[in-house]
Amino acid sequence: MNKVLFFAHLRDEAGEESVQLDLAGKTVADVKAIVAEIYGLQKLDSAMTAINEEFASNEEVIKEGDVIAFIPPVSGG
């Protein structure tokens, strides 16, 4: 299983802070499509993705146990 984390407006839209999904073997792009579909997220395309707290490209493949986080454009500072 994989833990998937939502932040900021994505968390508001998904209505969840984190969910458990079985995503091993899928690419980040696949995961975005799946998650956008399940949770009705409109703006997932503009979010970055992190795997285990490091930015990941759309081609990267998810492994069992990886923690996936969707990072909307940041606004700290």
């Binding site: 932040f7 900021a8 407006h9 508001d12 703006k43 395309d45 503009s46 979010a47 970055m48 992190a50 930015f55 986080a69 990072i71 909307p72 454009p73 940041v74 606004s75 700290g76 500072g77």
Partner: peptide, 26 residues
């Protein structure tokens, strides 16, 4: 690059900043 977000609260509403304008896309 630092995953921190701010939500602005105004007299007439609130919004997460950094997303709605969609000026930044990846």
């Amino acid at each position: 690059i630092v995953p921190i977000w701010k939500k602005e609260h105004w007299e007439d509403g609130q919004e997460w900043i950094g997303n709605q304008l969609e000026t930044v896309a990846y």
